[in-house]
Design a protein around this nucleic acid. Structure first.
Lengths: 343, 343
DNA sequence: CTGAAAGCGCTAACAA
DNA sequence: TTGTTAGCGCTTTCAG
């Protein structure tokens, strides 16, 4: 345990025989030093293995190089891809990213936001659905507002109602597209494997489905919408319930790919052939969707791009009114959907 | 832009009518304040929306609450699961995690390590294979050594040669197991879809395969080992080459699941039935492996647990000699492997 | 138990 | 161009 302390700026300055101010300027690339001194300081610093203390720098300079990223759960492929986009932009801007799980729990989210604020990050990106009910996220909203009032920047992905810049996935139109697709194949006894309708993402996708259904002379209220967790396991449970409670169903529309994967597992376990006996559709087009068994029909959302966009938005100068960027979507028809068996 | 500054400790102290020292003690839960004052300070702080500045705190106290996590690419499901484990442990300990991509590039890795050190994180977890050739990672090693000498902690996942605590996945034994499995099905014309053999992970898994092959009276040198990127696309390219250059092959062993997914895609595109015409095996058992088409035979590694273990190790008191934790592995036989067609 | 004051390592005026 | 110095917001001796 040498506990040998790391060299500080003074050490570098001393070793280079210049003032600490000169050393600071040389290392941070600021103007006002002769190239000669700058050169020498850099060499000495490298020799000593000097690495500036970010905390001291941030405290003195007032500007942080950190950004925050909050996801529901990094293991969920939807968030994984978003995170990947955020990391890419951050790296290329020389920013550092602090990441945290929210678990779709408003309390955990509040804690994480506080932690980011405590770290004085320059910008916060929050991804993942919010709640239809504005009240549950009021504390976070207030915290974010204060953060912004103090000069912080915020961008959210897939949320409204937070009064911040936002990247909005095409949930409504996507919900319409996938439902139209299933209807066009001839399905009428459709069931939805949904996450909690309290989530805006779920609500929006269902709203899109409703539009498609009405156009076809049907209504969402006439069909089973099974609410379970917005996860793989939730998809499995929802599908098992559909099989048991609505045995004549010919198509399951899962409200995200993760649920669709769970749905496929449930159908396999019950020996139901997809798409011959049951069609399955997902939403998001996560990277593995095309490699599933069978390859999943779904709606593609540009997740990585959404992550990039969000951080880029958050890094821009704030505008008077919150900005909104809506993404496109694309229906991707693969092998998991087909016409119902003529019964 | 109000640019209204956030309240500081002085503001809280003033509002509560106590000294800044007392306020500090009250908020950080230190001893030496009457419960009465502590109570009052906490109330005032909450009212004002006070959030302590981590930079100031770290600078003054000398102890950071941040930890660093470096992954090759968060989009790779192997790292995703590791990250999930790390985030879980961090959250439960009230630690903050800074994450970065290394892209399996030693230079990028060095930059990321420097960034973590600059942020004075308490511990660094580096996941992802190192290089067989020790020389390429010498600079990182030196940096980590200095970091540790200054009291920092480091743990790596799936690397040797770094002189730090390590969590070592069961690559050798796993490589043996999966190869034994394929051999036991009767395959002899086996090909390997490998990542760069310069990676220790690849080298170790191949060494395990060699053991199994020798026990069966064969040798690795007699079989095609196709080196491509250790990714999905790499798996696709390797498999296409196997199909073209070694057309009599009856089984492909991919050295990770991501490559196996690419292999399945390649075979599908060429109309080769799995496992009837070609068996495919993977390695890792990422979450989607069981949902692939067909479900993938692979070797399970406890990735999430590895992430947890690594951070836990890094948070422990350092020992004189680097600690090593080896994981187990489990052969998971699913539908992608079968006996070769009797030709 | 409480408060005054000395830094933590760095940046950014300000002088020279 | 250079160097001096006053903080940045907090923790932590050290007196009281």
């Amino acid at each position: 345990m040498a506990q040998r302390a790391r060299p500080r700026l003074v050490d570098v300055a001393q070793a280079a025989g210049v003032s600490i101010a000169a050393a600071s300027r040389a290392l941070s690339g600021a103007a006002g030093v002769s190239e000669e001194i700058a050169q020498r300081v850099r060499e000495v610093a490298a020799e000593l293995g000097y690495v500036a203390n970010v905390h001291a720098r941030t405290l003195a300079g007032g500007t942080s190089t950190g950004v925050g990223l909050l996801v529901h759960e990094i293991g969920d492929p939807y968030f994984t891809e978003i995170a990947s986009g955020v990391l890419r932009v951050a790296a290329q801007r020389g920013l550092t990213v602090q990441i945290g799980h929210t678990g779709r729990d408003p309390d955990a989210e509040l804690l994480q936001v506080r932690s980011l604020i405590a770290n004085r990050v320059r910008a916060i990106v929050i991804s993942g659905s919010g709640f239809v009910e504005a009240r549950v996220q009021a504390p976070v909203k207030r915290e974010l507002q204060d953060f912004q009032a103090a000069g912080g920047r915020v961008a959210v992905i897939g949320r409204h109602h937070l009064g911040t810049d936002a990247v909005l996935p095409d949930n409504l139109a996507g919900g319409r597209s996938i439902t139209e697709h299933v209807l066009s194949l001839g399905h009428r006894r459709i069931a939805f494997a949904a996450g909690p309708v309290a989530l805006t993402t779920v609500a929006d996708r269902l709203a899109g489905a409703e539009e498609a259904l009405r156009a076809a002379g049907s209504r969402l209220a006439e069909l089973p919408v099974i609410e379970e967790a917005f996860t793989r396991d939730g998809g499995t449970r929802a599908t098992l319930r559909i099989l048991d409670e609505h045995p004549r169903t010919t198509a399951v529309i899962a409200l995200n790919d993760d649920m669709a994967i769970g749905a496929l597992a449930a159908l396999r376990s019950r020996g139901v052939a997809v798409p011959r006996e049951m069609s399955v559709a997902g939403f998001d087009d996560v990277a593995v969707a095309e490699h599933l068994s069978p390859a999943l029909t779904t709606v593609r959302l540009p997740m990585t791009g959404m992550g990039e966009q969000a951080l880029l938005l958050a890094l821009k100068e704030p505008s008077v009114r919150p900005r909104r960027r809506t993404t496109g979507h694309r229906l991707v028809v693969r092998d998991s959907t087909a016409a119902p068996r003529s019964s």
